[in-house]
């Protein structure tokens, strides 16, 4: 996956307790990530409470997507700790030592976290229904009838019940992204990650995807959304963090950060995008 095969753990870090410091759903503690010599994340500390919708904004290259991918361990941390639902992601801590989890254990952790990608990444060789039931069948071993029933419910929710037997290529970008959301929800995750879900869409298709996400947020789903949609962040987000150059520059209620940015970098960024 990445070039690092081990996590360099500072002597001090070893003494960290196995349990997260708070009972928030996501707890990040000094999360750092290097790609070779390039420092992409320079120590991120944050918490996402249950039911919270956190929007992450910032210029491209600021590390927001990398941080999102660290949450479900698609990227291994270079240093720091990250807990989801009380579980340390990717490692087990025993007698002051970190042990890497097996592939199957990491998979189990990931199955509780849904992710929606900028490029949708639907499986082109499977139908819409096939995409949605794939993980429940293969990972959770749900009986096919039950998986199909849940999938149809989810497709109903994202407004695409009549597309169940279509293939991804036959759908518009907005429809594909809604299927991707249904696919992630089919695992009944307790956390949803959105990596710029509307950035690859034609402008007129953005609304339909945001509508689905808004409904999801209203239903109480915990969400971390990397986005450039400031309107969505203001309306739906409970909190907003502004990242730049691998650090969290500013954090607060969306309306406050967007209307009264305290930092010069935030102000400069917002003046360009709003």
């Amino acid at each position: 996956m990445t070039e690092e095969n081990h996590i360099p753990v500072g002597e001090g870090a070893v003494e960290t307790a196995d349990a997260p410091p708070t009972d928030a759903l996501v707890v990040a503690e000094d999360v750092r990530k290097n790609f070779g010599r390039l420092e992409v994340l320079k120590g991120i500390d944050l918490e996402v409470r249950r039911g919270e919708v956190m929007c992450v904004v910032g210029p491209s290259g600021s590390g927001k997507s990398t941080f999102l991918r660290c949450i479900n361990h698609l990227e291994k941390l270079t240093a720091g700790r990250l807990w989801v639902n009380g579980e340390l992601m990717g490692y087990r801590q025993k007698r002051g030592r970190l042990y890497e989890l097996r592939d199957s254990e990491i998979s189990a952790q990931r199955s509780d976290i849904g992710m929606v990608f900028q490029q949708f990444n639907l499986f082109p060789h499977l139908t819409v229904l096939g995409n949605v039931i794939e993980a429940p069948l293969q990972v959770k071993r749900v009986p096919k009838a039950k998986a199909t029933e849940l999938a149809m419910e989810l497709l109903e929710r994202v407004g695409l019940p009549d597309k169940a037997n279509a293939y991804p290529e036959q759908l518009s970008g907005g429809q594909q992204q809604r299927v991707a959301i249904a696919r992630a929800l089919a695992m009944e995750p307790s956390l949803m990650l959105f990596d710029e879900p509307t950035s690859a869409l034609d402008p007129e298709l953005v609304g339909e995807v945001l509508d689905v996400m808004r409904d999801l947020a209203r239903g109480g789903m915990t969400m971390v959304v990397v986005t450039h949609e400031m309107g969505f962040a203001r309306e739906v987000g409970d909190s907003l963090i502004f990242m730049d150059d691998g650090v969290v520059v500013e954090t607060g209620a969306p309306s406050e950060v967007l209307s009264n940015p305290r930092h010069e970098r935030t102000r400069a960024f917002l003046s360009k995008v709003i």
């Binding site: 698609l74 990931r110 990444n121 794939e134 993980a135 293969q138």
Partner: peptide, 25 residues
């Protein structure tokens, strides 16, 4: 690469990703 990442994010194991997602494509 997005295909195996999407499958990983869904919690599929490496073997399953190979058999169900990558090889067919």
């Amino acid at each position: 690469k997005g295909q195996s990442e999407a499958a990983q994010a869904l919690g599929m194991s490496r073997g399953k990703i190979m058999r169900r997602i990558t090889l067919p494509q």
